[in-house]
Amino acid sequence: MISTRRIVAAVGLAVGVTGLAAPMANAAVSEAPKPLNPIAELDKLAVSEIPAEYQAALPKVSRQLAGLNRLNEGLDELHQVTDLAAPVTGVLPAIEP
């Protein structure tokens, strides 16, 4: 069996190590860099292997995603119009998104 002294010593050692490690971990967290922007990182990765003179010719990922957002907004507006016209015309109820 493990003696009580050994258990107390092991617990004391664990508390001591934790007490020393906590301030160091806190310092590492407080000096952490700003959070990463995934879209900016994708823009960097997309042109990382492309020669510098050709990088400007490629569309950025962020610009392409913005275009998709505009397309989705346009489709939502079209869907709102067709929802209003569907009961009047009787043509569109069979079409579901």
Rank of each mutant, 00 (worst) to 15 (best):
M1H: 13
R5L: 07
V8T: 14
A9N: 08
A9D: 11
A10M: 05
A10E: 08
V11D: 08
G12S: 13
G12Q: 10
L13C: 14
G16Q: 02
G16W: 07
V17N: 04
V17P: 01
T18G: 09
T18K: 05
G19Y: 05
L20K: 10
A21S: 08
A21H: 08
A22R: 11
A22S: 12
A22P: 02
P23C: 00
M24G: 01
A25L: 07
N26Y: 13
V29L: 12
V29K: 05
S30L: 04
S30F: 08
S30V: 06
E31G: 12
P33T: 04
K34N: 06
K34E: 03
K34Q: 08
P35E: 01
P35R: 03
P35C: 04
L36R: 00
L36Q: 01
N37C: 03
I39Q: 11
E41L: 11
D43T: 15
D43G: 14
K44H: 09
K44Y: 09
A46I: 01
V47S: 09
V47L: 14
E49W: 08
I50P: 14
P51H: 13
A52E: 15
E53M: 10
E53K: 10
E53L: 01
Q55W: 11
A57E: 13
L58H: 15
L58G: 11
P59I: 02
K60E: 04
K60S: 11
V61W: 01
V61C: 01
V61G: 00
S62Q: 07
R63F: 04
L65F: 09
L65A: 06
L65I: 05
A66R: 15
A66F: 06
G67M: 07
G67F: 03
L68N: 13
N69R: 14
N69P: 02
R70Y: 01
R70A: 05
L71F: 10
L71T: 05
L71M: 10
L71S: 11
N72M: 04
G74S: 09
G74Q: 11
G74D: 10
G74A: 09
G74Y: 03
L75W: 10
L75K: 08
E77H: 02
H79T: 13
H79W: 08
Q80M: 13
T82L: 09
T82M: 07
T82D: 02
D83A: 15
L84Y: 13
L84A: 15
L84N: 12
A85T: 06
A85I: 12
A86M: 06
A86F: 05
P87V: 01
V88K: 09
T89H: 02
G90A: 00
G90S: 02
G90T: 00
V91E: 07
V91D: 07
L92P: 00
L92F: 14
L92H: 02
P93L: 03
A94K: 06
E96Y: 15
E96V: 13
